[in-house]
Design a protein around this nucleic acid. Structure first.
Length: 113
DNA sequence: TCCTTGACGCCAA
DNA sequence: CTTGGCGCCAAGG
């Protein structure tokens, strides 16, 4: 039972971190995976976000890949839903790519320490 | 039960 | 600098 809880905790932990992302800031799958200690399993972060779809309180639109591209926009209800939500947060998006991604980047490993 | 796919990321050529 | 390949872990067919 304890071992099973550990694995399930990974998904839950992803949601916790994503919910902590400040408005107007964004982060990457790898940064979250690294922060959780599962460095290299960035794919699982994306998988967890797919399962987070029913949970609207999770700002999954603030999570992009390492280059700031909205690769996950196709998984939203609408193809442009992710970009519109980011713009509502004050984040500029151009051609499915976040403008000034480096400046808007929010690293949980540094911010949450 | 085995094989393929996938919201990624790093390394080698 | 650009392209291709491998590794990570989980879920679906």
């Amino acid at each position: 039972m304890s071992e099973n809880s550990q694995k399930k905790n990974f998904f839950q932990d992803v949601y916790e971190v994503v919910k902590l992302i400040p408005k107007g800031r964004v982060t990457s799958y790898g940064a979250i995976a690294s922060y959780l200690g599962s460095k290299g399993s960035a794919r699982m972060v994306g998988w967890a976000l797919i399962a987070s779809h029913p949970m609207t309180q999770i700002p999954a639109h603030r999570v992009v890949n390492r280059i700031g591209m909205l690769t996950g926009s196709q998984h939203f209800d609408a193809p442009n839903a992710m970009q519109e939500r980011l713009e509502q947060d004050g984040v500029k998006v151009e051609n499915n790519q976040i403008v000034d991604f480096e400046k808007l980047f929010w690293d949980p490993a540094k911010e949450l320490m």
